[in-house]
């Protein structure tokens, strides 16, 4: 009789475990319970598009050089997506189609390389670095031993 009670108890635990797992799956937004297309509730206004047009704004920079050079757009794994002729001294916009699953691209203009975040189909590439503490070096003089010049009172 005692064995029977233990067995019932074990079965009860087993059933409740199964039941709990199923319940948590249905609540987990990262797991689908659909096993066929007929189970999927698709919003009437869903357009099924997997790409969108992205526009990257490129403000001009006050530089001496006025040549046209190539701006390269790459995926984050370094795959070349497109090249565009851009003059640094003129405002520019570059547009291209991008999979909606890609939210960041690499934009290169010669040795100027930026990661550009795309939000709502728009991004900004700036030639000029934002000033930060690393450029403000006059308050923290750096001494290179090789650069030291002995002080000689004249």
């Amino acid at each position: 009789m005692r064995k029977l009670i233990y067995l019932s108890f074990a079965i009860g635990i087993g059933l409740s475990s199964c039941s709990k797992d199923k319940s948590s799956d249905s609540l987990d937004p990262t797991k689908s319970t659909a096993t066929s297309m007929h189970d999927v509730k698709i919003p009437a206004n869903f357009d099924w598009k997997t790409t969108h047009t992205v526009t990257i704004t490129v403000p001009s920079a006050p530089v001496y050089s006025d040549e046209i050079r190539q701006m390269k757009v790459k995926s984050m794994d370094g795959k070349l997506l497109s090249t565009h002729s851009v003059r640094m001294t003129e405002d520019a916009t570059i547009s291209f189609n991008l999979p909606k699953s890609m939210q960041t691209v690499i934009v290169e203009y010669g040795s100027i390389i930026r990661e550009v975040r795309v939000a709502n189909g728009n991004g900004v590439f700036s030639y000029v670095d934002e000033p930060d503490a690393t450029t403000n070096d006059s308050e923290e003089p750096q001494f290179d031993e090789k650069e030291l010049e002995p002080f000689i009172e004249e």
Binding site: T30, S36, V40, K41
Partner: peptide, 30 residues
């Protein structure tokens, strides 16, 4: 093989109006 039995994020992508899992077709864990 219905696509929903192969790609587990397909239904979530479609039913979310494309907001969730726009990368449903790439090879990621789960």
């Amino acid at each position: 093989k219905d696509i929903n039995t192969v790609y587990f994020k397909f239904a979530l992508w479609a039913s979310s109006n494309g907001v969730s899992f726009p990368d449903w077709y790439i090879d990621m864990p789960g």
